[in-house]
Design a protein around this nucleic acid. Structure first.
Length: 221
DNA sequence: TTATAGATTGCCT
DNA sequence: GGCAATCTATAAT
């Protein structure tokens, strides 16, 4: 059984500094778990705790979009750290990454699942689930999966690609919500065919909102 | 210019 | 568990 979610107070959000992202994506993954993704438009607030991430290692990683070098599509990955890289996949879904490493290096982190904290009714509308009877199953349908969380937060490439996620005045940013450091497990990455064996998926141990049921291997370096 | 695979999801059997 | 949906980037012709 999992522990109850820690209390969450939007007034105490502290935006993460750019230096947080100016390092190896694997390190960013470990420390980003438990932090909060925030969408703020006027008085509307959406927030979700980060519970599942994957690291992409830039030009050295055959599974990474940056593997081919800088292009019009992936140029944000080669820019300064802490910015949103959003791509469209399978003709249906947007996926959110945050750029890591110094400008010129293209590591990144893919957001695979969030735990909804604030704005659940709005997320249900965005996901086409308005009016559904409240249940754990419906809650999981909101943000458990990279395409789902993007839709729940209204994240699209035209709207959000290139945004600075360390800017507290932005309508999309990443913050420390005061969650104590969670226990982290690693597994192989999901849904890729190239370099699929590397243990670069990071999840909060035991969290209900992780996107897939799958055997979790012990955390390793 | 045409073909194919893709960091996914949801519906169908 | 299988597979269609539906667009983009890239490879092949």
């Amino acid at each position: 059984m999992s522990a109850p979610p820690p209390a969450f107070d939007p007034a105490r959000l502290k935006v993460l500094p750019r230096e947080f992202f100016n390092r190896d994506p694997r390190r960013v993954c470990r420390e980003l778990l438990g932090k909060v993704l925030v969408r703020r438009e006027g008085n509307k607030l959406l927030a979700g705790r980060v519970v599942e991430l994957e690291a992409y290692m830039g030009m050295g990683d055959p599974a990474a979009h940056a593997y081919v070098g800088p292009t019009a599509r992936n140029r944000v990955l080669f820019g300064p750290p802490g910015h949103a890289y959003i791509y469209f996949i399978y003709g249906n879904h947007y996926c959110l990454n945050v750029s890591c490493m110094p400008e010129g290096k293209a590591g990144s982190v893919l957001f695979r699942a969030l735990e909804p904290l604030v704005g659940i009714a709005e997320m249900e509308r965005a996901r086409g689930l308005a009016g559904a009877k409240a249940s754990k199953r419906v809650l999981r349908l909101l943000t458990s999966g990279p395409g789902r969380l993007a839709e729940a937060f209204g994240i699209t490439r035209p709207r959000d690609n290139g945004k600075d996620l360390t800017d507290a005045t932005s309508d999309l940013f990443l913050a420390d919500g005061g969650c104590p450091p969670p226990r982290v497990l690693t597994t192989v990455r999901v849904g890729i065919t190239k370099a699929a064996e590397r243990p670069l998926r990071y999840v909060i141990a035991g969290n209900e909102f992780v996107s897939k049921k799958r055997v979790l291997e012990p955390a390793q370096r």
